[in-house]
């Protein structure tokens, strides 16, 4: 189910503005890949180009190749909607649907495309996904309550449950803990560890300790200068990046001597 992603010579534009330039990397299946780097360096933009979510912004486009298990995401015939069903995403701020119950939130993706679900099958998916997101025990007695009634950390795990309910091949996480307290963050990080056995996970984070804790590979993005496009400086196994990076600027960033 989990798939690897090959990116070659990827340029990402907003209109005429080149935001990210020349990214090459291979994201391994059943592993956690983290992206770190200063704000505005294009980590999130790059992440969103992996499931064609950046296209939601008018004028955004890419040049280059993204292959998921050999399948190109940007071939003319590929439907972005189909891509997003295979590659799930969790956002910076928890975003459960405000009018839906916990139960309906988990099933939101499964109910798309007017798919009809039997009650028993739906119950199974909800239980399995909430267990997968380590949320089941906390919410099993109030599945009919609105998802917005949960705490921030619980809402974020609800969003993860919603994303894995459709059994995607890849899970993209855009700073999933930046709006959460340390305890909720720890819960999400444990969850990422558990999910690794089944999914390919790509996570953007501002927290370098988090990258070190959860990821197998780390990519460091940086800007060449003000107004210049972001680019991938270094992509290596996490231990190497944090212990003995290839690039001086990576070491400067990680050790806090940036610039």
């Amino acid at each position: 189910m989990a798939k690897s992603i090959d990116v070659s010579d990827l340029d990402i534009y907003y209109g005429d503005f080149l935001a990210v330039q020349g990214v090459n990397m291979t994201i391994r299946a059943r592993a956690v890949t983290a992206f770190i780097g200063p704000s505005g360096c294009g980590k999130s933009t790059f992440l969103r180009s992996l499931n064609r979510m950046h296209e939601v912004i008018p004028g955004a486009r890419v040049e280059g190749k993204v292959l998921v298990d050999g399948q190109s995401l940007y071939e003319p015939g590929v439907d972005p909607v189909a891509v997003r069903r295979q590659i799930g995403m969790v956002f910076q701020r928890p975003n459960p649907f405000p009018t839906m119950s916990i139960y309906d939130n988990v099933l939101a993706g499964n109910r798309l495309n007017s798919k009809k679900l039997k009650k028993s099958a739906a119950d199974d998916i909800v239980e399995k996904s909430l267990k997968g997101a380590n949320l089941w025990n906390e919410v099993k007695d109030r599945l009919g309550k609105p998802g917005m009634g949960l705490s921030g950390g619980q809402q974020q795990r609800l969003c993860i449950a919603r994303a894995i309910a459709v059994e995607p091949q890849v899970l993209l996480m855009d700073e999933p803990c930046s709006a959460l307290d340390p305890i909720s963050t720890a819960a999400i990080e444990d969850l990422i560890h558990d999910l690794k056995s089944q999914y390919t996970i790509v996570i953007v984070t501002h927290n370098m300790q988090q990258a070190a804790r959860v990821s197998d590979d780390t990519g460091f993005f940086n800007l060449k200068g003000a107004g210049q496009p972001g680019h991938l400086v270094e992509f290596n196994p996490t231990e190497k990046v944090f212990a003995n990076p290839d690039n001086d600027s990576t070491e400067a960033y990680i050790s806090g001597r940036f610039g």
């Binding site: 979510m53 956002f91 649907f97 405000p98 939101a108 798309l112 495309n113 994303a163």
Partner: peptide
């Protein structure tokens, strides 16, 4: 809110489904 629209789109909603969800 963009947040809710993107929540729907990231699940693989079409434009119309996103409108209905968000």
């Amino acid at each position: 809110p963009t947040l809710h629209q993107e929540a729907a789109l990231a699940l693989g909603a079409t434009r119309w489904e996103m409108i209905r969800y968000a």
